[in-house]
Design a protein around this nucleic acid. Structure first.
Lengths: 180, 180
DNA sequence: CATAATATGTCAGCCATATTGACATATTTT
DNA sequence: AAAATATGTCAATATGGCTGACATATTATG
C-alpha cells in the first residue's frame, strides 16, 4: 500500500523568496521564447505564422478535434480562428468532417500535406526538448511535467489531462463525408 | 570534493518517444498560456498590454538595463519597443538616465509608480508559481529550473545566467540627470 | 410540432503589436 | 576628421487578436 509519502518525499525546503520565484519566471519566459522561435523560418516560407502552427499542432496531435475544443485550447474567438482555419483548409493542410453523433460539429483533421507540415514544424522543437531532457534523469522529467501541470489553472487541469492522455485516440477522416 | 555524479544520479531512462515529448510540449504551452494571462485584466484597466508588462517586468527586475539589452531580451525591433517605452515614459512608469561610462546609452529604471505597477502585476504570477512549487520538494524546483535552462538556446544561456544571477545588482537612478 | 438553444461560419471595423526601410542625433572609437 | 555605435523617430505594412451583428444547420425542449 504505497502512500504519497513514498512517492513524494516532502522535504519542503524554505519557502522561496519572491526574487527566487521571479528568476524562475524569467527562465520560463526565455525557454518559451526560444521554444516557439524554432519553426518561424519554415512558417514564413509558406506564408504562415505562429497562429497557423498552433492549429496544425493541436489538430495533428488530436485528430477529430472539434472547433469548439480548439477555441477553448487556444483561448481565442471563433472569428480569429476562422481566418487561420480557412487559410489552412483552402491550402489543403486541414480538412473537416461532420460529427457522427452531432452533425452540427465540424471535426478537424490534417490532410497528408498537413501531417507533413506538422512533422516538419515539430522536429526542431522535439529535438530541443529531447536534448534538454537527455542531460537529466527520469526524475527531472517527471518533476518538470508535474510543475507545469501545477502551474496550469486548477480548473483546466482535468481537461488538459484528458487531452494529453487521449492524444491520437480519435479516428481518421472518411474521405467520403468531408465537409465543404 | 563533490562531483557532478553526487548531484545528478544519471539513471538516463529509456529515451522518450516523440509522443511523450509532444505531451510535455503541450503542458508547456498550457502552463505558459495561463501564466501570462494573470495580469491581463489589470493591464487592460490602464490601457496597457502584455508588451508593456514585459518591459515593466525586465526593467523592474534589472534596474539600469540598457535599451539594447532589453531589445535582445525581448527579441523585437527598436521601433516596436519604441512605442511601448514612450508610452511608459510619458505616463510616468519608466525613466531613463544617461550611462556614466557611455553617455549614448539610456539606462532604464522604474519610477515609484512603475514599481507599484510591477509589484501589482507580478503578484498573481508569483502566487501561481509559489502554489505550484509548494506541493513539491526542493529537488523538483531545481529540476524544473534546470530543464528550463537546457531548453534555452545554448548560445544564450550565459547571458541568461548573468542576467538572472545579477538581478537587482545595478543602481538606482539619481533624480539629477534623468534624460528627457 | 414549434420554438429555443447550440455549433459553426462570416462580414465589417478596429486595435495591439510586430515588421522593414529610411533617416536623424549624440557620442565614442579609430 | 571619419567611422562606428546607441538611440530615437517617421511612415507604411502585416499579423493576429478583438467586438458586434447576423446567417445557417442541427439538435433539444416544452
Amino acid at each position: 500500500m504505497r502512500d504519497r509519502s513514498d512517492i513524494e518525499p516532502p522535504r519542503p525546503a524554505a519557502t522561496s523568496t519572491d526574487a527566487d520565484i521571479m528568476a524562475l519566471m524569467e527562465l520560463f519566459f526565455f525557454a518559451y521564447r526560444d521554444f516557439i522561435s524554432d519553426p518561424d523560418a519554415m512558417l514564413a516560407e509558406i506564408g504562415f505564422g505562429r497562429a497557423h502552427h498552433r492549429v496544425v499542432h493541436f489538430v495533428g496531435r488530436h485528430p477529430g478535434l472539434k472547433v469548439s475544443e480548439l477555441l477553448a485550447i487556444l483561448r481565442i474567438t471563433k472569428q480569429s480562428l476562422g481566418r487561420v482555419l480557412r487559410e489552412l483548409i483552402d491550402e489543403g493542410y486541414v480538412c473537416q468532417r461532420e460529427g457522427r453523433a452531432d452533425r452540427r460539429q465540424r471535426l478537424l483533421y490534417l490532410t497528408d500535406k498537413g501531417q507533413a507540415l506538422h512533422a516538419k514544424l515539430a522536429a526542431p522543437q522535439i529535438a530541443r526538448f529531447r536534448r534538454a531532457l537527455a542531460t537529466m534523469g527520469e526524475e527531472a522529467r517527471a518533476a518538470f511535467a508535474q510543475v507545469l501541470m501545477e502551474i496550469i489553472n486548477e480548473d483546466d487541469r482535468p481537461a488538459v489531462r484528458a487531452l494529453i492522455g487521449a492524444a491520437g485516440e480519435t479516428d481518421t477522416p472518411d474521405a467520403a463525408d468531408t465537409v465543404r
